[in-house]
């Protein structure tokens, strides 16, 4: 599902080039949960952005959902993100003005080309919310939800398009222990259904559901 080969990435900082990734090789297969751990600033989020086709300024070869990212147009990258990749962020990143269901439906609204009928999309959104146990909160705005509920809405949003790849950036970072456990269990369930899950975290508990736990340090995975 993901195959990253010799990935490099550097940024300019005060006129100085800082190399964040120095030849990272990583592959995540369908049904696999891979956890990437590392200290803050080690490049975990950068790696996730490259795997999620959000950052095109890398060196090396990245193949996501069977497509090489190199050479894809901005529109094609956007379409790939929309159809094949689900994102879960530490800070949830819900749109505050939208109720939970509208947040879940966002990927459907953003789909390029012919749009799915509104009613069918809504049904799928409700099903995604039900999957994370929040069917009753469909009309609630994010400000009325707890941290765990917000993260589950974010996961439901990631599931709407039935992505082949789920990318999670510190998904339990803002959650208490019990809520964090339920989110981790959910990732395990998704992997069992065939989704490739890549989680970057610095929390050990995520490793319990992970097929592999890798550490990113000095720009390299080990």
């Amino acid at each position: 599902m993901i195959r990253l080969t010799a990935i490099t990435r550097s940024f300019q900082d005060d006129g100085r080039e800082v190399e964040v990734l120095r030849g990272v090789d990583l592959s995540v297969a369908p049904g696999e949960v891979v956890a990437v751990m590392g200290a803050s600033g080690s490049g975990k989020s950068t790696l996730l952005a490259i795997a999620g086709a959000l950052d095109a300024g890398f060196g090396g070869e990245a193949v996501v959902a069977g497509q090489s990212l190199r050479g894809l147009s901005a529109g094609a990258l956007a379409s790939l993100r929309n159809r094949s990749v689900g994102f879960v962020f530490q800070s949830f990143n819900l749109v505050p003005a939208f109720p939970a269901l509208e947040n879940v439906l966002l990927p459907g609204l953003l789909r390029q080309g012919r749009r799915e009928p509104r009613e069918a999309l809504r049904e799928r959104g409700l099903a995604a919310l039900a999957r994370v146990g929040l069917a009753a909160k469909a009309a609630a705005r994010p400000s009325r939800l707890s941290g765990g509920e917000r993260q589950r809405v974010a996961i439901a949003r990631a599931l709407l398009t039935r992505p082949v790849l789920l990318l999670a950036d510190e998904p339990t970072g803002n959650l208490d222990a019990v809520t964090g456990e339920s989110v981790i269990r959910l990732f395990g369930e998704l992997a069992q259904e065939g989704t490739a899950v890549l989680v970057v975290t610095h929390e050990e508990r995520v490793s319990r559901v992970a097929s592999r736990v890798l550490t990113l340090s000095e720009g390299r995975l080990s």
């Binding site: 994102f87 990143n93 949003r157």
Partner: peptide, 13 residues
């Protein structure tokens, strides 16, 4: 951040 999220979810520039 919201705009970035929309891009992550499939919006083009």
């Amino acid at each position: 951040r919201e705009i970035a999220l929309l891009q992550a979810l499939g919006a083009t520039a």
